[in-house]
Nucleic acid binder design. Structure first.
Lengths: 249, 249
DNA sequence: CGGCGCATTGATGACATTCAAAAACCGTGG
DNA sequence: CCACGGTTTTTGAATGTCATCAATGCGCCG
């Protein structure tokens, strides 16, 4: 288990950072990195902990180093919708805004590399490489949000589940950089309830559709969380996406 | 055929541009504006025309000057979801990408201020004010997309319609900068079908819910498109949003 | 073992979709 | 001015998908 006794990690050199090449600092030269290094600090959260509540003052921005966090919105009567799934290297918070717009929750044990907002903004003004990278990341997130909107607005429950499993499978494969084909094997990092919040469904429907995909042989389950995808193309077909599961040039 | 007599508008000075203070050029100094002015050109499209198809090569970026355009995604079987609603001053296209990710359609007559991508990217590299503004606009769009995700995933048909009308009403009021209260009056700039694509509904459901809101006195219709909102708070209540309809500090 | 959290399964019903038809609207041309 | 055809919108009835309510099962830890 994770961070029992280390709410703040010891200082890790940026050169050794696992997200060095993907995070907001990806494009920085070594002198820029030194400046970032000077103002950074780590925070960790246990699975289930809330990082900030929507509307609360938030005096820092951060990169996810390890673990997974979610952004969610809530209607007064309790209906919840996840609007962001933050994986390692993703950026948290918004320069130029002082209060959080969403609830941020750690769904696994989580470590973030934080910068107090003011110093970060000042640094950004002098460091185009940071602003450039942040723009690029934000545009990617916008694309992801739009893909997600298609899912929420137009896909069936079964397609939603298949899509989510495909997304997780793809991410996992890219991380492990596995051999091209052969069955994919991974763990679902989300509870049924979190999946429901992601997909705009109830947890019962999520459970039913997962069972259905299992029954039809699209996925194989070992326990609640451990998944094998024997045929990724079959899964993508079920997801209803454009043939290729495709990316843009 | 398309653009009867004005495929390219006469050159308008940036100083006189109606979106000068809100578009991607908003922060530019006069010398920066000159550089932009040198590479800009206008294009117009008639209502209903497609600007580009998803996947097509797109060698320019642009700002909407007047009119409304939409971004939509389509599943193979024809299900469509709008993922962006582009109003005057909104930015179209993505620096660093050569092909369109979405269908872009003019839903009204449309004028755009275009920049060929390469010169724009070069200019952006030397002009932090443009990149800064673009980042800010992209972050705003991301927030809007997330609000939209909540709508798509969790709101009922009636709430979706009320939300859309509220969004249009708010935008319209901010444009006309009207007296605080008193009934709001405006036109819906979208067909029932476009609303359905926006909201993840069928056009029949859109029609039914609009009728229901009319029957309940939440809105007053004059013809198909002309709307009066006698009580904006009532409408916001129907939209199911956070009490204030609110913004973040 | 017993209790707690998470997940599955079942029965029922509400809400939105689908299919179908009628009505209202718009521009055109007589 | 009105008639006409095409398009958009409204309305109706039947169907289906997913939500809701409720009970049961599973795994884990004290």
């Amino acid at each position: 288990m994770a961070l029992k006794d280390a709410p703040v990690l010891s200082h890790v050199s940026c050169g050794d950072c696992p997200i060095r090449h993907r995070a907001v600092c990806a494009r920085c030269e070594s002198d820029e990195l030194v400046a970032l290094e000077r103002i950074k600090y780590y925070r960790s959260y246990e699975a289930g902990q809330t990082v900030v509540w929507s509307g609360d003052r938030m005096d820092f921005v951060a990169s996810v180093v390890t673990g997974i966090a979610t952004l969610t919105q809530t209607l007064e009567d309790g209906r919840r919708q996840m609007v962001g799934l933050l994986l390692p290297s993703d950026f948290v918070g918004r320069p130029g805004r002082s209060n959080a717009a969403y609830d941020i929750t750690a769904t696994t044990d989580l470590v973030m590399c934080c910068f107090r907002k003011k110093p970060f903004e000042d640094l950004m003004a002098h460091t185009p490489h940071i602003a450039q990278r942040l723009l690029e990341m934000t545009l990617d997130e916008l694309d992801a949000a739009r893909e997600w909107m298609l899912l929420l607005g137009r896909k069936t429950a079964r397609e939603k589940i298949a899509s989510l499993i495909a997304i997780i499978a793809r991410r996992d494969a890219s991380l492990k950089a596995e051999g091209r084909d052969g069955p994919l094997v991974f763990d679902l990092p989300l509870t049924r309830e979190a999946m429901a919040d992601y997909l705009g469904l109830t947890l019962e429907t999520v459970s039913r559709q997962i069972s259905a995909l299992r029954k039809d042989g699209v996925i194989v389950l070992d326990g609640k969380r451990h998944v094998t995808v024997p045929d990724i193309d079959r899964l993508l077909l079920e997801a209803g996406d454009d043939s290729d599961g495709g990316f843009i040039g």
